[in-house]
Design a binder for these strands. Sequence first.
DNA 1: TCCATATTCAACCTTCAGGTTGACCAACGG
DNA 2: CCGTTGGTCAACCTGAAGGTTGAATATGGA
Lengths: 113, 113
Amino acid sequence: MRPSLDTVFAALADPTRRAILSMLLEDDMAVTDVADPFDMSLAAISKHLGILAAAGLISQEKRGRVKWCKLEPDALREASVWMQGFGQFEPVHLDAFERFLAQELDAPADPAA
Amino acid sequence: MRPSLDTVFAALADPTRRAILSMLLEDDMAVTDVADPFDMSLAAISKHLGILAAAGLISQEKRGRVKWCKLEPDALREASVWMQGFGQFEPVHLDAFERFLAQELDAPADPAA
DNA sequence: TCCATATTCAACCTTCAGGTTGACCAACGG
DNA sequence: CCGTTGGTCAACCTGAAGGTTGAATATGGA
């Protein structure tokens, strides 16, 4: 299930989740350790991690009874590249971008079916 | 008030709003014209435009009775910079963009299951 | 075997996002 | 003036997001 831009951007829209990503930038972490600095229940953090994983922004691997969380920057890369299309700040493949544009316009309010 | 990453990412999380941004990439547009391709009430589009404006992603200028919407790509820069922090990867990678394109075109209506 | 640890599940609550509709206001063209 | 067009406002509905709590499900260690 490849994550969509919808889920990626939605995942990034929450400050708690962005903070988690920042933490994971340093190193892989167990769920409990991720939750530690937050004033929030473990269950809530677990949900946040689930959302990040669903967006493809992290991966989770269970070793023993500990679930390790690992940053997966690839999903970010795609979103980043999408954004670059709007800036004149970086060179971009206009032809490819325009194909993408056309596709977006064909199905504007994608019913997420 | 400078828009936060929260509002920018939240604004980008909606496919209708991303489609609107794509449209504005081509040219400035009036609200009614923006709404035209969407199967959605004008009021709804007006709200979407308000959200995009609040996020700083577009600006709106009223001339006569027509309100013109203009893309403001600078707002994306901050978010883009934030995201770059997660890549040890280079600023823009066309390979990545093309992979993204291929995926997007392969399965346009992501089930988001 | 028994208890503690790690994590999720299920049910629930509250807030907000995204949509509708209909009334409303402003500006233009006779 | 007057009707039409462009756009917003206000009230409302529905569903989902983000949080809580408490029970449930491994796994590890003694």
